[in-house]
């Protein structure tokens, strides 16, 4: 055998042993790697399932978060629009504030002017008030004097009225007396004249009125007076009936009680009527 052949045989044997060792190691490591890969695939599948579940949850959460984001964006949009509106309103209010400030300044000046005017008017009013008080005092004094003069005038008018009434009554009675005198001169009965001389005078200040008017059986007109002996009246006293200041007729009392009297009316030939309420005074004849 050639030396080269021998050398190649030896070298081939060595290479065969090396190749066997390397193949054993490679096979072992390949098995381990296969198991590791299988385990990794299992873990990967589990991880994929978990990832899918997590992805689904994340998707739902993302959807809810997206919804929230949309809501928040809408709210933000509304807030932005509200902010814009508020800014516009703020600008408007600022303009109004500036206007009001200017108006306030002008109003302050006007207030100062009005204060001065008010003070002037107050001083003027005080002087007028003082003058008014003086005038009122004078007016009260004048009114008091006027009242006194009015009272005096009324007293004098009353006295004048009484004097006129008395004078008119006296004239009427005088006329009646003349007529009675004429009738007596023409031949009427003397007994009547004698009976008239026996009549009494009533108290000078006697004042009363007719309460009732009636006629007795003989046709004489009888009147009832609300006065009697307590007022100084007596039977056969002569009284005069007057109305509105004028003489109407004479009354001769025929019955006098304590507080009531009845008298016969003497018309003295006059065509008059007696009414309840006619005044009755003392006769001066």
């Amino acid at each position: 055998m050639h030396i080269v052949t021998k050398f190649l045989v030896v070298f081939a044997a060595v290479l065969s042993m090396i190749l066997a060792g390397l193949t054993i190691a490679y096979t072992s490591n390949a098995g381990a790697l296969k198991e590791a890969i299988q385990l990794s695939e299992n873990k990967a599948s589990q991880a994929s399932a978990q990832a899918a579940a997590v992805t689904a949850a994340a998707a739902s959460e993302r959807e809810s978060l997206q919804q929230k984001i949309n809501d928040l964006e809408n709210a933000l949009q509304q807030a932005v629009s509200a902010t814009a509106a508020l800014q516009g309103e703020n600008a408007k209010l600022l303009a109004e504030v500036n206007g009001l400030k200017q108006a306030s300044v002008s109003h302050s000046a006007q207030i100062d002017q009005f204060t001065a005017v008010v003070q002037t008017y107050a001083a003027l009013n005080k002087s007028q008030s003082d003058e008014l008080n003086t005038l009122r005092a004078k007016e009260l004094d004048g009114a008091r004097k006027e009242i006194e003069l009015s009272d005096r005038i009324n007293d004098l008018l009353g006295e004048l009225e009484v004097s006129r009434e008395t004078g008119r009554s006296l004239q009427e009675q005088l006329v009646a007396a003349r007529e009675s005198l004429d009738r007596s001169q023409q031949g009427t009965s003397l007994g009547v004249s004698g009976s008239e001389q026996a009549l009494l005078r009533a108290p000078t200040n006697f004042r009363s009125q007719v309460n009732d008017v009636r006629e007795d059986e003989a046709g004489n007109t009888m009147v009832t007076l609300p006065a009697g002996a307590s007022d100084g009246l007596r039977e056969r006293m002569r009284l005069s009936i007057v109305r509105e200041g004028g003489f109407v007729a004479s009354v001769v009392l025929e019955r006098v009680d304590q507080n009531e009297s009845v008298g016969r009316v003497d018309f003295l030939g006059r065509e008059v009527t007696i009414q309840a309420g006619d005044r009755v005074i003392a006769s001066t004849l």
Partner: peptide, 26 residues
């Protein structure tokens, strides 16, 4: 000395193949 023959060539091919296999496996 013995001459080179066919076996020497075959061994040479085997050695070359083994070297290549050792290289790839390594």
């Amino acid at each position: 000395s013995a001459p080179l023959n066919i076996y020497t060539g075959l061994m040479l091919a085997a050695v070359v193949s083994l070297i290549a296999a050792v290289g790839f496996v390594m």
